[in-house]
Design a protein around this nucleic acid. Sequence first.
DNA 1: TAAAGTATTGTTAGCGGTCACATTACCACA
DNA 2: TGTGGTAATGTGACCGCTAACAATACTTTA
Lengths: 334, 334
Amino acid sequence: MKKKRPTLQDVAERVGVTKMTVSRFIRNPDQVSDPLRDKIQHALDDLGYIPNRAPDILSKSKSHAVGVLLPSLTNQVFAEVIRGIETVLEPEGYQTMLAHFGYSQDLEEQRIATLLSYNVDALIISESQHTPKAQKMLENAGIPVIEIMDSTSTSPLHIIGINNSAAAREMTQTMIDHGHRNIVYFAARMDERTLQKIAGYKQAMAANNLTAAIKETRSASSFTLGAKFLEEVLSEYPDIDGIFCTNDDLAIGALYACQKKGLRVPEDIGIAGFHGHDIARAMVPLLATVVTPREEMGRLAAQQLLKNIHGEARHASVIELAYEIECGESIKKI
Amino acid sequence: MKKKRPTLQDVAERVGVTKMTVSRFIRNPDQVSDPLRDKIQHALDDLGYIPNRAPDILSKSKSHAVGVLLPSLTNQVFAEVIRGIETVLEPEGYQTMLAHFGYSQDLEEQRIATLLSYNVDALIISESQHTPKAQKMLENAGIPVIEIMDSTSTSPLHIIGINNSAAAREMTQTMIDHGHRNIVYFAARMDERTLQKIAGYKQAMAANNLTAAIKETRSASSFTLGAKFLEEVLSEYPDIDGIFCTNDDLAIGALYACQKKGLRVPEDIGIAGFHGHDIARAMVPLLATVVTPREEMGRLAAQQLLKNIHGEARHASVIELAYEIECGESIKKI
DNA sequence: TAAAGTATTGTTAGCGGTCACATTACCACA
DNA sequence: TGTGGTAATGTGACCGCTAACAATACTTTA
């Protein structure tokens, strides 16, 4: 026989008033007479009353929660996006409801339904491609939806992100400028962002009459994967003199593998990563990388959302954030 | 004038039945007559009906959501714990509600109240020390609560974790066995786990008549912090010949800094980390580290929780998971 | 063909707050 | 002492769904 948690009614009975009076006290003690204030507070503490949002959610369809839908939580990038989001939402009293879908559209559809079933007040999503059903849910939900990560998305939504393909093109060009020619792209996950980056990489290679080559996998990027890719690529592309990775971890893993093989970076092989995590700034040699404003992206998305929730509706807009090409030491052959 | 999302009533009217019939169809189509099935399904799709959990949460006080309360989300360790938790909860139809409190007890109290206000069916927390009010809420909540991370916690709760102090003691002893003497501990955050680890480190040092020395900060651990600590420690403890870090990132940051300084690892300085992240297995030299079962911890906690939710109550128990001392190459002086 | 199922659909109430609207208590002032 | 006004509290109703029960409709069987 487990005890149920106390309701306003329980507290009210203990004090000898109606629950309405207790409700008033909780929201604005001034509305309640002096002698009652103490009694109610005491009863509240005594019973350990904990507010219940369910009735409010039911009657107002407002949950004070924002749904955040990301492909993965273990990816450091998304962890930082989340931090940015929460930095803004928490002080405003909004709870973040996190869900992830492991890069699967069908799972994404389910997660959207789940989040909506909790009456989230807004949604932050991170892909532009959805199942038709998911698409419809997003349209019918009647709440603000923001898509983050890539600014070139064609969704009819508010979008906040960076131009991944431009960033990749620019970094590839930078590597070429530093004398690298046979640059292989290390890809993982093959999600929308990675495909954008690959496109940018290919453009830069083509523009310089160089041959693009891609090492890819559907699985997650990691340090060990970077090392494995390097082992393989050496036999597959013996002429390789540059590697551009979809993520810093791949790059660093590859770099370690080079050290083991006795290959010099950047002299024998130039290596560049993507995102500019903290480690890139501490390592030897400093990693060339595209520094992305992950946390800021989260912050801006959350701020935009709050504006929308508070009624400042506006047309779907695209905010493109700046990235930064950091040359480090790992591609400075010339 | 924003459109409200459709309710069961809306669907029912469209079909010409009562919402009860639609409700039945959704939960078990067999209960509805053949000709209606199609019509209802059609209306459902047509209006884009999305189930609403609020009424259920209100009437049954069951949300099918589990609250997870962690100090930080950006810490890789917790990201993996979350993955473990979700691996188990998602297939069971439970939504994870994440909250974090930045290592502050007061914030933790607030987060607990918030999560409970959403009627979570269970709670996973990660600290043993709480404010009195938080403590009371946890007791009164009437839902299963599991504390994870450290098995030596004295909470009167279900506990799943590792013995951090024993692990630190063992790793310190291992370093000593490999010929390191003046080992300094690099600490960050100063949370409960770190304090436990420091205790274990001190025990091992004392047992070998060696002097313990600690570099500490309240801020988060990072690669750059590890590098900074190394710089500082060289002048503060010129005799230093070993570093044991509360986290792999500190260790790796310190290691890079050693490389810059021309210090050999492990010959001049042995370095050990904690947790055994993927990078430790890819790097050169391989990092000595305590491998912790982070994901398993999350999985087990979630499984335990599900059992409790389904009524298999039991006395508070402690599950101590095994860690592993991995020597790698970074402490093998002897 | 009537009685007795069984299958299908409908009706009511309630979950726990809060809104909008009474109602009562209390006070000042003419 | 009565009147008007404000402060303090109370009274349904409602949010959307479903459990429990009620009422039909349709079959089957004697």
